[in-house]
C-alpha cells in the first residue's frame, strides 16, 4: 500500500467509515495476528488479543498524527496489548508459560508441514520439521516479554531497526544488545531441547 492510499485509509478511519475499517483489518490482520501469536503461543489468546488491537485502533485513530508508518503504530499497540496479556496470564498462573494450547500446536505443525511440503520433504524430514517448529515456538514463549518482542519483530516479522526503535521506544544500541541476548537465550533453549 503506497503512502497516498494509506493516508486516504486513515482519513476514512478517522471518519469511522465501516468499510475502511474492514479494509484495515483485512490489510493488517496477518501482521497483527502473526506478532500476537508468536508472542503468546496460543491461538485462542492470539485471536482475542488481535480483536482488542483493532478495537484500540478504532478508538485511538484520532490520536494517530502520521509521523510514523501506520503499520509501526499498529505494531506498537499490538506490542502493548501482548505485554499486558502476558502479565495478566502470569498473574493468573496460566499454563501458557510452558505449554502451547492444542489448537496452536496443530497450527504450528500445519505450518511446519506446509513449509516442508513445498520442498517435497520425506516423512522423516517433515516430522523433524514439525518437532523443531514446536520446540522453537515453545522456546520463544519462554523468553521474557521484552526479549520475545524484539526477537519476533526482527527475526520473524523482519522489521528494520528503525521501525523496532519506534515500536519499542528503545535506543538503537539497546535494541541491538537486547536482541543479541535474546538470540543467545533462544539458541541455548533450542539446543537444550534438541539434544
Amino acid at each position: 500500500m503506497d503512502l497516498r492510499d494509506e493516508g486516504e485509509l486513515i482519513r476514512r478511519l478517522q471518519q469511522h467509515d465501516e468499510k475502511a475499517f474492514q479494509k484495515c483489518v483485512k490489510l493488517y490482520q496477518a501482521k497483527v495476528y502473526g506478532l500476537v501469536f508468536r508472542m503468546l503461543g496460543s491461538q485462542a489468546e492470539a485471536e482475542d488479543v488481535s480483536q482488542e488491537v483493532f478495537v484500540t485502533v478504532f478508538k485511538s485513530i484520532d490520536s494517530f498524527r502520521g509521523d510514523s508508518k501506520f503499520s509501526t503504530w499498529l505494531y506498537r499497540i499490538a506490542a502493548n496489548h501482548c505485554k499486558n496479556r502476558i502479565k495478566y496470564l502470569k498473574r493468573r498462573a496460566h499454563k501458557q508459560t510452558g505449554e502451547l494450547d492444542d489448537a496452536a500446536e496443530r497450527e504450528l505443525l500445519g505450518s511446519a508441514h506446509s513449509t516442508l511440503g513445498q520442498k517435497q520433504a520425506s516423512p522423516v524430514e517433515a516430522l523433524e520439521g514439525q518437532q523443531l517448529g514446536h520446540i522453537v515456538q515453545r522456546a520463544i514463549t519462554k523468553l521474557d516479554e521484552e526479549h520475545r518482542l524484539l526477537l519476533v519483530l526482527r527475526d520473524v516479522e523482519e522489521l528494520s531497526y528503525e521501525e523496532i526503535m519506534q515500536v519499542t521506544g528503545l535506543a538503537e544500541g539497546t535494541v541491538k544488545s537486547r536482541l543479541h541476548r535474546a538470540r543467545l537465550v533462544l539458541k541455548e533453549e533450542i539446543a537444550r531441547h534438541t539434544k
Partner: peptide, 13 residues
C-alpha cells in the same frame, strides 16, 4: 522454519 500463521478468516467481521 516456523512458517506463517493464518489469522482467523472472520476477524474482519
Amino acid at each position: 522454519g516456523l512458517g506463517t500463521v493464518e489469522p482467523p478468516t472472520d476477524l474482519s467481521e
